[in-house]
Structure formats: structure tokens, C-alpha cells
Design a protein around this nucleic acid. Sequence first.
DNA 1: TTTTATTAAATTGATATTTAACTAACAAAT
DNA 2: ATTTGTTAGTTAAATATCAATTTAATAAAA
Lengths: 156, 156
Amino acid sequence: MGTKYTGNASEVRALDAYIKLMRAAESVTTRVSRSLQPYDLTVSQFGILETLMHLGQQHQNDLGEKLLKSSGNITLVVDNLEKRGLIVREKCLEDRRYVWVKLTSDGDKFIRDLFPKMVTIITESMIVLSPFELEKLGEYSKQVGQNAQKQCAKAS
Amino acid sequence: MGTKYTGNASEVRALDAYIKLMRAAESVTTRVSRSLQPYDLTVSQFGILETLMHLGQQHQNDLGEKLLKSSGNITLVVDNLEKRGLIVREKCLEDRRYVWVKLTSDGDKFIRDLFPKMVTIITESMIVLSPFELEKLGEYSKQVGQNAQKQCAKAS
DNA sequence: TTTTATTAAATTGATATTTAACTAACAAAT
DNA sequence: ATTTGTTAGTTAAATATCAATTTAATAAAA
């Protein structure tokens, strides 16, 4: 939606901010994605590994909620990470509907090495803004995100 | 990346803003996607129709650049819109490497009717912010987006 | 002119993503 | 305890997405 829209003023403002927000997110995601390529990792795979590293073993359900992805999607991405030996699935004994997903020792080493590199990449993209501006960008984004989510709960 | 990262201060700020930016974009996209569902339209399909409505016929190449998508992706999405009779391809006579993509009269009617509805949806998500805040969100997003793109040109 | 290089689009192979079934396991309630 | 409902995960079908390759057409250079 790269074109000027001639509706009422508040729609024009909302649409303009929306377009810029989306482009920023897409551009940074592309940058991250390219940086993960040498490691044969997708952004989604990285997200799961990073979550497991910081929060420890998780149910697939929790991963889906934290990463805003559908359950079917988590199943597939976990499949691919498991094939590669970076994570393992383990039946939950207390409630056998659940599956624990945990890092293997290979996976743990891998993500602990990779994560700081990605932080650097992301910082390079964001650092054009001052600390104050970063703070405000985060604050405004959070409000928009929460509002949009309120209007539309994710499928599971 | 929903977890606190304990690197240096500027990395923490950058990462925090990044996470909120990404979540906002994902949440609004989900909202838009759900709203397009009754019309059997994806966000990408909507993007192409909207671009054609506002800018007139385009080469596939131009669509890819404007929408930040790969050429292979544009080929597929244009395929699906063409099957549905909303757009047509037309060989460019001056330079036969190019293909013109244009709205059919059905497609034109369709997108002219749909676009204002989507503007309303988007506005509903963004309007939690004041005019000033929307302005700033757009400005900061634009800077981040441009910076990220400078660091990483999209594939074509 | 013939070769070389570039560009647009299509194709292929792999992963992602969602929705909509579907199965399995647990919980509640009469 | 059986039915009823809910929840976690899987599977299938459709679309999306990219990178890499290929094909066709144009441009540049020798």
C-alpha cells in the first residue's frame, strides 16, 4: 500500500503509519533471515530455539502462544528441528496430551553461540534510533499490537 | 524473543524495541488476514490488487519491488489472481521480457469495493495512538526500515 | 555479426503458514 | 461409569515464500 489514500484525516494517518510499520518489520525480518541462512536456519526455527534457551523446555502449545503461531505450524517447525538433532520431543507423563520440547546438548551449544550474533545484527538495524526513540517505538508498537490482538485472538 | 536479554544496554534497548515492533506487525497482519478471509483473499493478493488499483498496470518486476517480494513469489500470487479472473497478464510488446499485469473490470470493481473496508479495519487497530504518536511511530519505523534495507537488498 | 552479459519471468525444491478436520487424552457432570 | 465437552497435537490441503536454476529476450561489446 505504497500510495496516498484520500479518505478522512484519521484514516490517512493510520494507514500511513501502518504501511511504514509493516515495511520496517519486513525489512528487518529479511535482514535477520539472510543472516540465519549460513546456519541453515529459518526465522521460525530460530524463534523456537531461542525460546527454549531462555525459558527451558516448553510444551508445543506454549511455543505457539509465545511465538504467535498456529499449532500445526509448531508441529512442522519442531519436526524439522528434531530431524536435525537440535531438539527432542518427550511425552509428558503427568498429562499425556502434552509433549515436552527440549534442546539437545548440540542444540543448546548451537543456539548459545548463535544468539549473540543475531542480537548484533538486530541492534545494527535498530541503532539508527536514539535510546529515547527506541523506547517510544517500542511503546507505540506495543499498544498497537495489543489493540490488534484484542480485536482478533490467534487460532490454535 | 519474549525474554529479557542481559547484554549491554544498547543491545537490550534495540532488542526490546525489535520484539515489540515485530509483534505489532504480526498482530495487525493477522487481523487484516482474518478480515480478508470472507473474501477468499490473502494479504499478498490484496497487496497486488491494491497496487494495481492505485498505480494502474504494472510489470511483475515492479510489483515485486513495491511489495518487497521475490519474483518467484509474484509469479505465483499473480497466477492465483489470474485463475480467479481478477487480473490479466499481457505480453509487453516493446520489450517482450516484460509482462503487464492489469485489473480486469471484475477485479477493479472488487478491489474498489474492498479497499475502504480494509482501511477501516486497519484504522481500528492503529487508532489507539494519537495523531502525534502515529506520526512518530511512522517516522521511527521508516528509519528502521530504510536502515535495514540498506544493510540488505531484497532478492529479485 | 557473433559473443557476452544482463534482465524478466517461470520453474523447482524446500520450508512456512493457516484453517479445518481428526485422534488421543483428560475433565466434568449428571 | 458413561456421556459430553475440552484440550494437545497431528495431518491434509491450500497458499505463500525464498533461493537457485532455467529460459527467453534484450543490450553491449568484441
